[in-house]
Amino acid sequence: MALRRTLGFASALAGLVLATAALAQPLSLPASKESRKVAVVVERGITHTRQLRSAELRRLRKRMVGGLPMREADLRRLAEARDGLAALRMVKLLRPRGLEAHASDIAWYASIAAGAGRASMFDDFVGALYLLDPASEPRGRVSQYIRVLYPHVWAGNSMAQDALIALNGADKLFGPMSEATRSRIVQDGGARMVLSLAMTDLGRGDLDAAGLTRVTGYLDVAERKGDLPIRTMARTLRQSADARLRTLEEN
């Protein structure tokens, strides 16, 4: 019964990949709750008042830690100084105003907080990334997002892995995926991530023979490394990729 369900899901998934090819929509695979909670400290930042060089910032941090009222502008100053607590409070301040309307600031401050080890901010960080406009988001902020996201990817956080796959590409927030990143996904990303990369590539309608050949290579890796559901999905998608490759060769 479990095998039939797996085969049925794999067949439906293959159809969904093909049906969404024109839209090039990223597809993500089910993941364990534990894998979404994997956290990494990228930059601890300011954790003690004495670390701040400015006497004014030290005064402001003492007010914040003491629970005294603070102006938003002062809280921003502390967050910009890489104070993880201040960044967390900025996210909580901005969140009720609307994630979409304040996506850039939420992504920015949540990246500082999550990068400092405040794992509760990681959902806000990743959620905001999907709402950012690649054409207008400041490149300095994008570099920060990559610096925080990628270590979570390689540590095995499935939410980070899905975001990396979805946000790399032409006209995407992180731009076209580098060959180095593709290679590391195959080497370190695990079967689920390799399969997700293959699914995303297969969802493109403009793949040439070389691209399809690369996809089948990813599917081979996923089938070799994955558990039963992953292996079954990889085999099913391999059939779709092979069919498209034969069509290209015949034409």
Rank of each mutant, 00 (worst) to 15 (best):
R53W: 06
P69S: 14
Q51I: 09
S136L: 06
S111R: 00
R77Y: 07
E72M: 09
L78Q: 01
V91A: 05
R118I: 11
E56K: 07
W108K: 04
A119K: 12
M90W: 08
P69K: 13
A79H: 11
E56R: 04
V91S: 07
T47V: 08
R139A: 13
E80A: 14
E137T: 04
L78T: 00
V65Y: 14
R77E: 08
L93V: 10
S104K: 08
S120N: 13
L132K: 00
I106R: 00
Y109N: 00
R89D: 07
G115T: 05
H48T: 14
R95S: 05
R82Q: 15
Q144M: 09
Y109K: 01
K62A: 14
G140M: 10
M90N: 06
K62M: 13
R50Y: 11
E43F: 15
E100I: 03
S120Q: 14
A107N: 08
G84R: 04
D123Y: 13
I106S: 01
A86D: 03
R63I: 11
G66L: 12
R95N: 06
T49D: 13
A114M: 08
A110F: 11
M121R: 04
L99N: 01
M64D: 15
A73V: 12
L131Y: 09
R76Q: 14
Y145H: 09
R89V: 04
G115I: 04
D133Q: 10
A128G: 01
R141K: 12
R50D: 10
S54I: 05
A73Q: 09
V91E: 04
G66R: 12
S104I: 06
I106T: 03
W108P: 00
D133N: 14
H48Y: 14
L129P: 00
Y109T: 02
L68G: 07
G115D: 03
E72R: 11
S104T: 11
A73H: 07
A116I: 07
G66V: 12
E56G: 02
A128T: 00
G67Q: 13
H48K: 15
F122I: 05
R58H: 07
S136W: 06
T49S: 14
L75E: 00
R63M: 15
P69T: 15
I146P: 01
G127T: 02
P134C: 09
D124T: 00
E43K: 15
K92G: 07
R77D: 02
